[in-house]
Nucleic acid binder design. Sequence first.
DNA 1: GTCTATATTTGGATAGAC
DNA 2: GTCTATCCAAATATAGAC
Lengths: 183, 183
Amino acid sequence: MAWELCRAEGLAGLSLRDIARRIGMQAPSLYSYFDSKHAIYDAMFADGVREFVAQQPDAPTTDPVEGVKLRMRYYVAFCTADPVRYQLLFQRTIPGFEPSPESYALSVESLQALEAWLREAGLDAPGTLDLYTAIAAGLASQQNANEPGGDRWTRLIDEAAEMFVHQARVMKQRKATSGRRKK
Amino acid sequence: MAWELCRAEGLAGLSLRDIARRIGMQAPSLYSYFDSKHAIYDAMFADGVREFVAQQPDAPTTDPVEGVKLRMRYYVAFCTADPVRYQLLFQRTIPGFEPSPESYALSVESLQALEAWLREAGLDAPGTLDLYTAIAAGLASQQNANEPGGDRWTRLIDEAAEMFVHQARVMKQRKATSGRRKK
DNA sequence: GTCTATATTTGGATAGAC
DNA sequence: GTCTATCCAAATATAGAC
């Protein structure tokens, strides 16, 4: 079915009537497919995560800097391509909406995949994953909030990736050093 | 007047009735002070920016790492102390709301002050300011979205500050080098 | 300047014909 | 399964008494 159509548009302040009209239907027809408006949100949430995972490029763990650049570019492009989807999936500021456990599990999986990738790339000190998500989310968030459609922040991705990998290595080094010291 | 009271609570999905009740009034009484709900948003936006500026700590430009740590701690604490205020001021996802030119000017001023501070601290290569705001916003955004009230991201602030200053210096160095090369 | 009462609009959801 | 018609609740905003 073509529910993906409405995804590209928006829903933060959209009514069921608006959503329905965009896909050439009347509002009540939506209830043949979904129990409530939140069920629509949830389906879009799950759909968004699946698409994020499916289209994610393979990134080399043998060259962490290049790999992180690739991954960050993809993430930020995904977020800025559809700010409303970004809001639904990552900002979670839709009033009253929380994804169902099943949908949420999808996003947890995706995060674990990122964690595994970072480990494989040798970037696995505590806090490294969270630092990564903060940097990537920050670039996307600033771009969407202050200059949607522009590149004032997206053009910093490569520099940010280098910065992150450098810091991740420092963190790992510190961990090793303090570990030795403790022994 | 005590309109600041409602600021601490929330408004993303709040009605005028809710706002009014929190300050011990009835909804229509608000119209003695504001022309519309958006006018309330705008007043809260301006008020939030003013408070952000007023309470900002002095940070030493003589020790950029320490200064950035101080500033980032303050920014993230300000954002996480009141996620709804954060949404209103920095995420800008309140449906239909845009600050008035006068209110917006306040936030531009604040950003220019940050830029001036960074320059004074010697961190003034192109993109440095935007990298700073991305990192700070990313930490706040992730904390609020994924673990409101926790410290999973806030505890990374000092590390992030060190990382940022290091990168800012790299960027400045590169600029100087490429400048020489061009000459 | 604050209240009660109410107008007006809008949005989510249901009923029932086709 | 999609439509029209409609119900019901909630929200912004206004009118007018006090």
